[in-house]
Write a protein that binds this DNA or RNA. Structure first.
Length: 193
DNA sequence: CGTTTTTGACCCGCGC
DNA sequence: GCGCGGGTCAAAAACG
């Protein structure tokens, strides 16, 4: 049911733990929640890391962005061979009219559920690429239908199908595409380190 | 014709 | 043990 959405490179992960979201103006971030669970037995909750990464996008919205970094207490299975690689969760709450935003990856919906205290349904997506177990959960805020909560879980093993990377984005910038103008502005605001 | 969506069923952890 | 809330499976339908 997805309309023809051009693969917009609007999400980029840096090699560091910092993440830059040069989204378009359509996506007005209101809340960013990082839940990075380490595989270790680190049950600490680091509310504010030593290097707080503040991301502000959607300059037109005016509303600031909040970022929270958490640490999931993923207790190890105590098994010597158990490798709990799961533990990278990123929750983004944005104000968007579109339920699912195209982050450049191909997602396949595999479930739909209605949660308590929320009339809206919650959708479950999974990365289409085989071997990539990245999951994504999209939910509308019942109170404010204008807000959408997108939760990513996992790390992609492969690159974006559209081959969009931060450096390549500038190179492949299409000046004739007005929808990317704001993208360029975001890029200029966040120059590569 | 291959891939994705849909949708109810199933499953699992947890609290009672 | 059972029910509930939440997450996933899978078969058929729908899509391109």
């Amino acid at each position: 049911m997805n309309p023809s959405q051009s693969p917009s490179p609007n999400l980029t992960f840096l090699s560091d733990e910092k993440t830059i979201y040069p989204f378009m103006d359509n996506y007005d971030f209101s809340n960013l929640m990082f839940d990075v669970g380490e595989g270790g037995n680190n049950g600490l909750i680091q509310e504010e890391p030593s290097s707080p990464t503040t991301i502000v996008t959607g300059e037109s919205g005016g509303s600031g962005s909040a970022l929270t970094t958490l640490s999931k207490k993923e207790s190890t299975g105590s098994k010597d061979g158990e490798t709990k690689e799961v533990g990278h969760r990123v929750a983004i709450r944005t104000r968007s009219q579109i339920d699912v935003m195209d982050d450049g990856y191909k997602w396949r919906k595999y479930g739909k559920k209605s949660v308590k205290n929320n009339t809206n349904k919650r959708n479950y997506y999974k990365c289409s690429s085989e071997g990539c177990m990245v999951k994504k959960r999209v939910e509308r805020d019942g109170e404010n239908a204008a807000y959408v909560i997108t939760t990513y879980e996992g790390v992609h093993n492969h690159e974006s199908p559209s081959h969009v990377y931060y450096n390549d984005m500038v190179l492949s910038f299409d000046h004739d595409n007005p929808s990317q103008h704001s993208l360029l502005r975001s890029i200029q605001k966040f120059p590569p380190s």
